[in-house]
Simulated assay, not measured.
Amino acid sequence: MTLLHDADLAAAFDRAAHGYDTLVAANPGYHAHLRRSARRLGLPGPGTGLRVLDLGCGTGASTAALCAALPDAEITAVDASACMLCRATAKPWPKGVRFVCAPVEALAEAGVEGPFDAVFAGYLFRNVTDPDAVLAAVHRLLAPHGRLAVHEYTLSGRPAHRAVWTAVCRGLVLPVATALGDGDLYRHLWRSVVGFDTADRFAGRVRAAGFDRVRVLPLPGWQTGIAHTVVGRRAHSTTAGGPR
């Protein structure tokens, strides 16, 4: 199966938006893990005066995690799927939260401008066509020493962890998604993880994009070795890949 990209992927998320929250609610630890990754930004609570960019916000689960960690921050949440955002905006939010419908590659055209104190990206990078270009854009949007947290399915590289991921997808996620009519999207999501960077390789991408203090932090439960938070800080250089 060919992986979905760009408009095709956004359209698949549009079709799946009706059942998305139901499926993720069945994932043990899904929301708790997002909250943990949001705290790993290391920003001072309650976030007064801080600007945070939430990339790939979907139906708002990552936005809610950021609100829990930084209730007074100004949060701009972005997603390319209009139907996912419709689900997100129907929920109650603090006054500092706004939603923008745009692909991550076209933030400037959508009026999303820095500097931001932090960028959070949940389950985003394995779904973009050019992860390095997106990292460079994130680097430009961050203030000097701004924080990045990437919450992602990035396998450890151990065969056992890849086997667990495949078993969960084939035995649970895909049958349920197919019954809901969303099998194509979730087959993409399964294969996008298998074909993406290991956690350490992705951390190397982040360093190469001009970030320092890069760390790979595991997530607990069945996702150990499967999902990680990769955190970093925009180095004080003015260009991505500059001296660190």
Rank of each mutant, 00 (worst) to 15 (best):
M1Q: 10
M1I: 07
L3G: 14
L3W: 10
L4K: 14
D6G: 08
D6C: 06
D8R: 12
D8W: 05
A10I: 03
A11R: 13
A11D: 15
A12L: 12
F13T: 05
D14M: 09
Y20R: 05
L23K: 10
A25Q: 13
N27G: 02
P28N: 10
G29E: 10
G29C: 13
Y30W: 08
R35E: 09
S37H: 05
A38E: 08
R39V: 02
L41T: 05
L43R: 07
P44L: 06
G45E: 12
G45C: 06
G45D: 06
G47Y: 12
G47R: 12
G47T: 09
T48E: 13
G49C: 06
L50F: 09
G56W: 00
G58E: 09
T59R: 07
A61N: 11
T63R: 03
T63W: 05
A65K: 15
A68Q: 09
A69D: 05
A69E: 09
P71L: 01
A73F: 13
A73Y: 13
A73H: 11
I75H: 11
A77N: 04
A77S: 14
D79S: 10
A82P: 14
C83R: 14
M84E: 07
M84Q: 15
L85H: 08
R87F: 02
R87C: 09
A88V: 10
A88L: 06
T89L: 14
T89M: 12
A90S: 12
P94C: 09
R98I: 05
F99C: 02
P103W: 10
P103E: 07
L107Y: 06
L107C: 01
A108G: 00
E113W: 04
E113D: 08
G114R: 03
G114M: 03
D117K: 03
D117V: 04
D117W: 02
A118G: 14
V119P: 03
G122N: 15
Y123N: 15
F125T: 09
F125S: 03
P131F: 00
A136I: 00
V138L: 01
H139C: 02
H139E: 00
R140C: 04
L141Y: 01
L148I: 07
V150Y: 00
R158S: 14
R158N: 13
W165R: 12
T166E: 15
V168N: 08
G171L: 07
G171C: 07
L172S: 05
V173H: 13
T178W: 04
T178N: 03
A179D: 15
L180Q: 12
L180P: 11
G181V: 04
D182F: 06
G183F: 00
R187W: 01
L189F: 15
S192V: 04
D197S: 08
T198Y: 04
D200P: 09
D200F: 03
G204N: 03
R205A: 01
V206P: 03
R207S: 01
A208G: 00
A208H: 00
V216S: 11
L217P: 13
L219D: 12
W222C: 02
Q223M: 10
A227C: 15
T229K: 13
V230D: 10
V231Y: 05
R233F: 00
R233H: 03
R234N: 04
R234M: 07
A235N: 11
A235R: 06
S237I: 00
T239M: 11
R244C: 06
